[in-house]
Design a protein around this nucleic acid. Sequence first.
RNA 1: GGAGACGUGGCCGAGAGGCUGAAGGCGCUCCCCUGCUAAGGGAGUAUAGGGUUUGUAGCUCUAUCGAGGGUUCGAAUCCCUCCGUCUCCGCCA
Length: 428
Amino acid sequence: MLDAKLLRSDLETVAEKLKIRGYTLDVETIQALEAQRKEFQAKAQTLQAERNSRSKGIGKAKAQGEDIAPLLAEVESLKSQLEAAEKSSEEVQAKLHEIYSSIPNIPHESTPAGLEEEDNVEIRKWGTPADYDFEVKDHVDLTEARGWYDNDAAVKITSGRFSVLKGPLAKMQRALTQFMLDTHAENGYEEVYVPYLVNQDSLRGTGQLPKFEADLYKISKNEEHDTSDRDLYLIPTAEVPITNLVRDEILEESALPLKFVGHTPCFRSEAGSYGRDTRGLIRQHQFEKVEMVQVVHPEKSLEALEELTGHAEIILQKLGLPYRLMALCGGDIGFSAAKTYDLEVWLPGQSAYREISSCSSFEDFQARRLMARFRSGQGKPQLVHTLNGSGLAVGRTLVAVLENYQNADGSVTVPEVLRPYMGGVETI
RNA sequence: GGAGACGUGGCCGAGAGGCUGAAGGCGCUCCCCUGCUAAGGGAGUAUAGGGUUUGUAGCUCUAUCGAGGGUUCGAAUCCCUCCGUCUCCGCCA
């Protein structure tokens, strides 16, 4: 959520900056509603003040044994006026809140202009895709025949877009997870274990709600056994539970930056994604991801994004996987992000670079909704800046390892850094 | 899951319809006193939003005593629902 004060004082500038991401702000509607808000809110507050002071008067008169009947009659007429004023005030504020909740973050000035994926800017490349003197297979062909990847079983158990991994493949996914967590811990991240189901407040805090409910799996309660009226959702990313650790918190300035890393499964309903990447492990309703989250001082968020992105790159470098770093353009960054770098790994099976990590700075956009603040000196609490990045998407990393390390005979060499996590095995 | 108790500011803890945005204590900040690794005295110390304003200053209004709703001229205080904590029982990895 953007700063309401900024929206009131400098709406035109905000509208201008949002054009960079192809978003058109309805300036006239907002201005009209703001004018109403101001009028109704002021009126309601004046009436409340009136009622409060008169009610106090009644209390004092009663204490002195005076007749309070005439005073009561006076206040009576206030009541209906106040109720009406409060109602209009609440209605306008609810409308404004809905509009404000649906406005995306303002892109950072260093975010490249452009609306299409083609407008993303390549920052650097690392590694060189290998030349294979045999016909390369994709990860499905490499694993299905050996019984390690079983789509049919997943369909039987659940439905499409889920997968069953077996044997060395399942083990390698676990090895990758362990390797990533350990590496990030060495770089100063505190490992956290968090719930996979979250409430609505958490999803609002990080910006998935209210706009993107369709992408989420909602857990409906069993009425017979659960009288709670709270719906829970499966997390689409560990960003949600981890970033919400600081919701409603006022941190000490000295506690910043906070750096967390966690591994969770992620659940995405991804309506509309059918037809893209229908084969294999690239796009699933359930996948594993290691996520880094940083909570930093507002002046440090830009350099923190570079650092965090670097931490994701280290994983790819240690695994020896060729990749490129892309700065996403205004039209391609997510709703809550001010600036985003994507890491794209080389997949020989597709002869293409594919996204394997997304690292974003949200500046104070999430923090405002989260009420995540810090106290510096004697001053008022200020909003922190939040960042996160995949470090990495484990399922896609598994695909990348399989395809980049494949041999002519269909076996796969285990990258050296992974061997300690796989009992020293050198090939699978 | 069953029964009972409870949820107040950074922390502890009073308050049981009006004089309570909230006593008292601890902690913290500032000032004074004191020459010694201590103590004493004084002041201050929640958050959000609105209005005013060149102003993240000041003034002022509103809201907030787990959350939401209700009763009332008036609710931390009464009623309802939910969330959470603790104790005992049950169940379970």
